[in-house]
Structures are given as structure tokens and as C-alpha cells.
Simulated scan of single mutants.
Amino acid sequence: MMKKYLCYDVGGTFVKYAIYAEDATVITKGKFKTRVVDANQFFSDLAKIANEQSDLDAIGISFPGFINPNTGEATRAGALYQLDGLNLVDELKTHLNNVALLVVIENDANCAALAEKLNGNAQDVHDFAVVTLGTGVGGGIVINDHVLHGYQYRAGEFGMMLTDYSEHGEATLHDLASTSALVKLYAQTKRLPVESVSGEQIMAEVDTDSQTRTLVDQWANYVAIAIFNLSVTNAPERILIGGGISQNDKLLPIINAALNRIRFWSDFKCDLKTCAHHNDSGLLGALYLAQQIH
């Protein structure tokens, strides 16, 4: 009989869900608003989807924050701070009709990495990292096909790196290398409202406006520093760049050029690609986890 897995990707605004067959074919998918003012309501919303199914083999959950995948506890639940300290798996099970159903949970950035291992651009490697560029800088590290969690499950917080202390003090990669940082830099330089600028707009101008190209190159230097530091630290076979801006074909050559400006890159160079998955990466990473435990 065909196996079925229910997967959730929990975000600050919406919870996306999908039921997958064992070959990753989507049987059904949808989303609902994230309601966390009342924790009981949050878990009831999740359980409602599961309780409508009678033949699930396992549940996989992609969740923000510092997540202990062994126990299901959220030391910190990211933007969903109302759930800090709760055992998310145990809480969900109290609302399930089938309390014996296997449930596994993992940090959302780690799920993005596992999605690439499942059926993306990391299927052929065992050691790799994912760096996501968006509102902030996130990521995950996989060594010997296992996520590196680190002490208190805080590994992979690339966005907190300090990379230019003398010039920017304690400004982190969130402040310097995220897509939001690029948008802010562009808006300040062009004297535009930040809300009127998008990453897509900037990348569209990069080959036609010299000022824009200079700004993008400056920003790409910080992205390259993050990639270089990861390569020096972990020696991955491949580093994948994710986030909406990574879907632009112009990005990878710009980052490669920035890396080649680093004198020692040739000694620590690894394969650099973009992620295959974007909007569904959390769901697919949760699927990978669910398949592993069942």
C-alpha cells in the first residue's frame, strides 16, 4: 500500500501543509493562518488536518527557531515566541486522534537543506551547506548526510556572523549580506523609499546601471565572505545559495566573481550552486525527515 506523509511548514503568518506519497508526489496541499496567541488553538489547527486523514504513516514539521529534533522541544520558537519552551511534538500529539502516529520536527533552515538532499541539488554529495538570502541570512550544514545541530541546536546561524568589525562594528550578516540589506543600500543610495524597492528591480538594473552594479558588487563581497568562511570551517563539497534572489541567473556569476577576489579562495574552493527548491523547501525537508523515521 502506498505510504502517505503529512508535512507542515510553519511560518509566522501562514502554516503550509502537504500530503505526499512516498515518491514525493503531492496528493493535496494548502495553507492556513498561523494562530499562536493561544497555544492550544495553534496545535488544534495543526491536528485538524491530520485528524481528517485515516491512513498517514508519519508527520514531518519544519519549524522556526532552536529546535531539538530528538525531543521535539523548541528552546526558542523564532517569531512564534508564545511557543518558547514547549515540547511541540508532545503538544501536537495531545490533539491527534491517533496518538501513536510518528511525528518528527526540525528547524526550518535545516529542512531547506534536507529538501536539497531529498530531490534537489545535493543528492550527489554527502557534505554541503545551504545559505539562504532573504529578510535575513539563514542556513543549514549537512555532514555525512546528517544535519549539524551543534550545542543547544544553534548551529547554522550564519546571519549572526560578524564580518567587518572595524568598519561596521557589530553589524551582522543579516545587516550586510541579506537581500533586505541590499534593498536598503540601494534605496539609500538612490534616495528612494525602501518599500518601493525589490531585489528583482535591483537585479534587473545590474547590467545597465553602473551605480547599481557597484552596489551589488559591494553587497556580494559580504555574501562571498560568508561562503569563504563556511568553506574554510567545514570544507563542504558544495554550498547552495537559496532565497528568492537566488532564482535570478545573474546572481551566481556575481558571487563567483566576488569569491575570486578573495586571495585564498583557490585553496578552499568548493562547488557553488543555487538551491533547486524555494517555496516548498520546508515541506520537502519535512518529508525527508518523515521518511527517515518511518
Rank of each mutant, 00 (worst) to 15 (best):
A18Q: 04
I19G: 08
Y20E: 09
A21D: 15
D23M: 13
D23K: 02
A24K: 02
T25E: 09
V26T: 08
I27Y: 13
T28W: 00
T28E: 12
G30I: 14
G30T: 14
K31E: 14
K31I: 04
T34V: 12
R35Y: 11
V36E: 15
V36F: 15
V36G: 12
N40Y: 11
N40V: 09
F43M: 03
L46E: 03
A47I: 01
N51D: 12
E52L: 13
Q53W: 02
S54G: 13
D55F: 09
L56D: 06
D57Q: 14
A58C: 12
S62Y: 05
S62D: 10
P64I: 13
P64G: 05
P64K: 07
G65V: 09
N68K: 03
N68V: 13
N70P: 10
E73R: 13
A74T: 09
R76V: 02
R76W: 02
R76E: 09
A77S: 06
G78M: 06
G78A: 04
L80N: 02
Y81E: 08
L83Y: 08
G85M: 07
L86G: 07
D90C: 12
D90G: 14
L92I: 00
K93W: 06
K93C: 10
K93P: 08
H95R: 13
L96S: 07
N97Y: 10
N98E: 12
N98K: 09
L101M: 11
L102G: 01
L102A: 08
V103N: 00
V104H: 08
I105N: 04
E106D: 15
E106K: 07
N107I: 03
D108V: 01
D108Y: 00
A109D: 02
N110F: 00
C111V: 00
C111W: 08
A112M: 10
A112G: 11
A112R: 05
A113W: 01
E116G: 11
E116C: 08
E116R: 04
K117A: 07
K117M: 06
N119V: 12
G120W: 00
G120R: 01
Q123R: 05
D124H: 05
D124S: 08
V125Y: 00
V125W: 00
A129N: 13
V131Y: 03
V131S: 11
V131Q: 04
V131T: 01
V131C: 15
T132H: 07
G134C: 12
T135W: 07
